[in-house]
Simulated assay, not measured.
Amino acid sequence: MLRSYLRLVLFAFGLLVGVQVPGFITDYSQRLDAHRSEALQSLQGFRATAQKFFKGDLEALVAHYRVSDDPVMRSDGQSVATLVQRDRLLEAEWWAMQGPWYKQVTHLLTAANQELLLETYNGYRYQVLLAPEAIAWGLSCALLLAWLVELLLVSIGFMFGVGRTKQVLARHRH
């Protein structure tokens, strides 16, 4: 009986963990959008200058700043280069999150921007969504976790002979 309750607790835990996945993906995407909008706004004036003098080429604008004799301009060139790099990084991250759910999850697990991922995790509020994708994630994680733990316990029990009858043990000794 205790074993059945432990299975239920394990299943419930898997369910609750699984329903967090869509919410976390949404939070990460929203945070990414906010940072991306901020980066675009930060570069707005520099884009206008690049458009006016360098046919829209921000790299040419940065190069112009860097070769200037004025140390203030060179310093500003480094600042603009940092903004351009951040904009490109966020743009690439945004495109990576535009795919189907399985690509989004794979990206978050393997190649997500660590700073943004940590920021999202630190600001994440656990929630139980009743959206179809959250229910599907919850049930999938619950079943997978229950199956893996059951498989692990059965394997360990098999290695140590737990659950074998005396006849089976006697047959293997001869």
Rank of each mutant, 00 (worst) to 15 (best):
A111D: 07
N113G: 10
N113C: 07
Q114L: 11
Q114R: 13
L116I: 11
L116C: 06
L116G: 00
L117T: 05
L117R: 03
E119W: 02
Y121G: 12
Y121F: 15
Y121T: 11
N122W: 08
G123A: 06
Y124F: 12
Y124T: 04
R125I: 06
Y126T: 11
Q127P: 01
Q127T: 14
V128R: 03
V128H: 02
V128Q: 06
L129S: 12
L129M: 11
L130I: 10
A131N: 11
A131Y: 05
P132Y: 04
E133P: 02
E133D: 14
E133L: 00
A134W: 00
A134F: 00
A134G: 00
A134M: 00
I135F: 02
A136P: 01
A136I: 13
W137R: 01
W137I: 03
G138Q: 00
L139D: 01
L139P: 02
L139S: 11
S140E: 05
S140W: 10
S140T: 15
C141T: 15
C141H: 04
A142G: 09
L143F: 11
L144G: 02
L145V: 15
L145C: 04
L145M: 13
A146L: 11
L148I: 06
L148R: 00
V149E: 00
V149W: 02
E150L: 02
E150A: 07
L151A: 06
L151I: 05
L152R: 05
L152S: 12
L153C: 13
S155C: 09
S155E: 03
I156R: 12
I156D: 05
I156S: 09
F158I: 10
M159I: 12
M159S: 14
M159E: 09
F160L: 10
G161F: 02
G161W: 03
T165G: 13
